[in-house]
Design a binder for these strands. Structure first.
Length: 540
RNA sequence: GGCCCCAUCGUCCAGCCUGGUCCAGGACAUCGCCCUUUCAAGGCGGUAACACGGGUUCAAAUCCCGUUGGGGUCACCA
């Protein structure tokens, strides 16, 4: 193999992965080739660092699928002492945006899936933005043209559209009809030189077949008759994904391509490209696709897909990472907890054990996991997260500065109740604004308004007679009071709860009142008593 | 439609390669009970699945074939 790549000489000095092998195994359910050790052609003696990448295209919001595939790549790289790179595939000039690219990098950092090389961190194989690598693609296209593995196609959009219509009408399989396939070299050169627009297509020998080796699925066979003469170079002189991904993976020393299942049908084209260039192909491993509840590929119409949404909802990156990992393999030994941090996931991860069924993205389980992670945070850490979270400007909610000292006092009251950081307001609003009373709100206290008023006044009087507020001291006294008044303890507390907070589900009442302050608490009790003694008693 | 991938509780995963220990295990959700000033959290318990049909075998969730079902893909998007 060519020894020109800068990484190749360095590779042999890198430590072998923990397994002692290159980490690549093939599994085949149908052929019984389970876990057969496999050495990629470039894996000399299996002393080779794993180099993996994610190659998102910067269009639209940062996608949860990118995080999913990114996580598995990250785990695999870390586990094998290799490198994880980020490459931006911005060859679609009409759809790529710098803002989207920035959000991809921002969310990878938010998730703490650090990449060793990328547009913003650099690396030995840069640039890591395909729009800045056009010289490479031109050079390699020329190589293919010279070898006769590709050809210029001068067909117009209109002709192609017409061709497809006819194929459809005739119920023929769609695909390029080969009009320009055998254009004489001279004519091709001449028309190109004359400035005529063209694309470059792969020239596929329709007679053969290509086998794609997939770590999880074994051998997948494709007949060349089914493979279209794929466009490699667009008329705007930008490469298509197929060319760019192969050239870059080679130039960047990528050893394992872990990507989504939707790429399987185009993989034979990639394999053929590697062959045309005379390069060994990397190991392919196609990961399952995240699904909507109806099992279609996850989409933003049916499921939140933007990582920004998850962040704005107050999901912890630890929880999302944990959850995504669970959608594909089982870090658990089958007895007990499913809460794992990235270190534990890395230790338990096994690429060849990734499950193939497309997992339905279950927000409910994510929320549970988020609650688990929230509860595992120390009070200070939780307070920090809340302060930071509330300070962020989200599109639908301006950031707000909270008093860290106050938040630290509230956290013990709400931490085990919260599933998402965004619930801060609903748990604590009564600390910040006056309550708006409604008689229906008292219904759960199961007492008539005059009775409620009497109870609330008694509670206020009792608390007014002691210094300060102290839930340890006041609770027994209030229970006592309930007995003396002949009402249920629960009803008394519910009446107070609604009076002080305006709602029937709140953090622990007496502790909340301590934080609210005695003056405000008593004022609310008395205001509620007054409110309840007014108007039609039957209203409740 | 062609090609390709997939198939265990409602959902996520374990078991399948190396058939018997599986009247199938864990987690989320759900239901019930306990704890409890609400809501949570926590504890205990319950309901719930091997898609179907053939084979191979003494024995199949596990191996083979087929059917059905689901998904992906068929662009000068990735």
């Amino acid at each position: 193999m060519p020894r020109t790549h800068p990484l190749l000489s360095r590779r042999s000095t890198l430590p072998a992965p923990a397994s002692g092998r290159c980490g690549a195994f093939y599994r085949s359910r149908s052929r019984g080739l389970h876990c057969r050790p496999f050495s990629p052609p470039s894996c000399r003696g299996c002393i080779m660092a794993v180099r993996v990448r994610i190659a998102p295209s910067p269009t639209g919001d940062p996608h949860v699928g990118t995080a999913y595939v990114g996580l598995f790549n990250w785990l695999y790289a870390r586990q094998n002492g290799g490198q994880f790179l980020l490459r931006i595939e911005d060859t679609d000039q009409t759809r790529s945006t710098p803002a989207s690219e920035a959000s991809i990098m921002r969310t990878m950092k938010w998730l703490d899936l650090a990449y060793d090389e990328g547009p913003d961190v650099g690396g030995p194989c840069g640039p890591y933005r395909q729009s800045e690598r056009t010289a490479h693609y031109r050079e390699h296209t020329k190589l293919l043209l010279d070898k006769g593995a590709a050809y210029r196609c001068f067909c117009s959009d209109e002709r192609l559209a017409l061709m497809r219509e006819r194929q459809k009408a005739a119920k023929l399989p769609p695909g390029y009809d080969g009009t320009c396939r055998n254009l004489p070299k001279e004519e091709s050169e001449r028309r190109a030189a004359a400035g005529e627009k063209f694309v470059v297509r792969m020239k596929i020998d329709k007679a053969g077949k290509t086998i794609v080796k997939d770590v999880l699925r074994g051998d997948i066979e494709f007949s060349h008759a089914e493979i279209d003469d794929q466009v490699l170079m667009k008329s705007d002189n930008f490469p298509t994904y197929h060319l760019a991904n192969v050239v870059d993976d080679r130039l960047m020393g990528i050893t394992h391509v872990l990507r989504a299942e939707e790429w399987i049908p185009s993989t034979p084209k990639h394999v053929l490209l590697y062959q045309a260039f005379g390069w060994p192909a990397p190991v392919f491993c196609h990961l399952p696709l995240l699904r909507n509840a109806d099992r279609t590929k996850i989409s933003k119409r049916k499921n939140p897909t933007s990582l920004d949404w998850y962040r704005a909802q107050g999901f912890l990156p630890e929880a999302l990472v944990n959850f995504l990992a669970l959608m594909g393999f089982a870090p658990s030994d089958g007895s007990g907890s499913e809460v794992f941090d990235r270190q534990q996931l890395m230790e338990r991860f096994a690429l060849e054990k990734v499950s193939l069924g497309g997992p339905v993205f279950d927000l409910t389980k994510l929320e549970w996991l988020n609650g688990e992670w929230i509860r595992r945070l120390s009070v200070d850490a939780m307070a920090d997260r809340l302060v930071d979270f509330m300070a962020i400007d989200f599109p639908d909610r301006p950031g707000r500065k909270l008093d860290p000292a106050f938040v630290r006092q509230v956290v013990p009251l709400i931490q085990e109740r919260m599933k998402k950081l965004s619930e801060w307001d609903e748990w604590t609003d009564f600390f910040f604004k006056e309550v708006v009373l409604a008689k229906e709100a008292f219904r759960r206290a199961k007492l008539a308004p005059p009775e409620l008023a009497r109870v609330l006044t008694a509670c206020a009087d009792l608390l007014a007679a002691v210094p300060g507020l102290d839930h340890g001291r006041d609770e027994p006294a209030l229970r006592d009071l309930a007995t003396r008044l002949g009402v249920k303890v629960g009803d008394l507390f519910m009446a107070m709860r609604v009076a002080v907070t305006g709602k029937s589900a709140t953090p622990p009442l007496l502790e909340s009142m301590e934080l609210l302050g005695k003056e405000k608490s008593l004022a609310r009790l008395r205001a509620a008593a007054k409110f309840l003694s007014e108007g039609d008693p039957a209203e409740l």
